[in-house]
Design a protein around this nucleic acid. Structure first.
Lengths: 144, 144
DNA sequence: CCGGAATAGTTGTATGCAACAAGCATCGCA
DNA sequence: TGCGATGCTTGTTGCATACAACTATTCCGG
């Protein structure tokens, strides 16, 4: 198997292990995306769907779960009767902070022997990999 | 959000997109693991479970699907009546080759602007990341 | 050599995540 | 003003995974 593909597989396995040990039960990715958008005002579900490249229905259910859990508030958009505005509750902020702290702690401990430059290089190259792959697939999708 | 965590998220998203566009329907990871072990003789399910850090039941279902699809043969282990020996059929080899070719082609096209050294560096650092995370979680698991 | 603990694997059940299709309001433009 | 597009929800499905319970087999200590 190609070494790069193998390394991707290994990363997936590591992430699976990590997730498995953190029964946080909340879709942190969606939560974080809402927070990232809050400063700019309202956050619509369609934006989340686009950002994650997920089906709107998937986002709808995730958000519904978050609302049920009291982590997100949903208010009607005054400018568009179809849409809703999302924002985090205090509990939502807390949940996301806790989840980040958990992952942060695990990762930084696992990488305690890495130099900051090595970590930066890893981060940059993974971002670039993801960016290039996503760009390609997005183009392929558009021309389908 | 921590940049490293964000980059991991992005890689997951890219992989999801890639998978989404490849309706290969066969668990290639398991298939590849069987092939990797074939030269050494028999391959048991417990080995696959350990290698992937998956529950034996998950492997059992994956293998059952592969057998159903005609990609894997299952023969009783002559030395252990509980166990079975797994090996790829011709169709199994072909399926794995095709899947690898697909991913290989997509990835190398997406990374066509990368230098070989950059790709090597990415591969090495992702492998190291995965290794360190897996080692840590394995230790934590053992002391639980 | 026998019986109980350990092991290999399967099956039942449950959960989470994802997709697609259909439907309902609402919006916006011709 | 009416019809197509848009934002979202719901129903259904399929897949991957875990855990628990079960069967059949093997291994080991007395």
């Amino acid at each position: 198997m190609d070494p790069l593909v193998k390394s991707i597989y290994d990363v997936l396995k590591a992430v699976r292990l990590l997730k498995q040990r953190h029964p946080v039960a909340a879709p942190v990715g969606v939560l974080a995306a809402i927070r990232r958008r809050e400063p700019a005002g309202a956050c619509h579900m369609k934006e989340l769907a686009a950002e994650h490249a997920l089906d709107p229905s998937t986002i709808s259910r995730s958000v519904a779960a978050l609302v049920r859990a009291g982590l997100v508030d949903r208010t009607p958009d005054p400018d568009d009767g179809r849409a809703t505005q999302l924002h985090l509750t205090a509990a939502g902020h807390q949940a996301i902070d806790e989840a980040h702290a958990f992952y942060q702690e695990r990762i930084s401990h696992a990488l305690r022997d890495w130099s900051p430059e090595e970590i930066d290089a890893l981060t940059a190259s993974m971002s670039r990999l993801a960016h290039d792959l996503i760009a390609q697939e997005t183009v392929l999708e558009a021309t389908r």
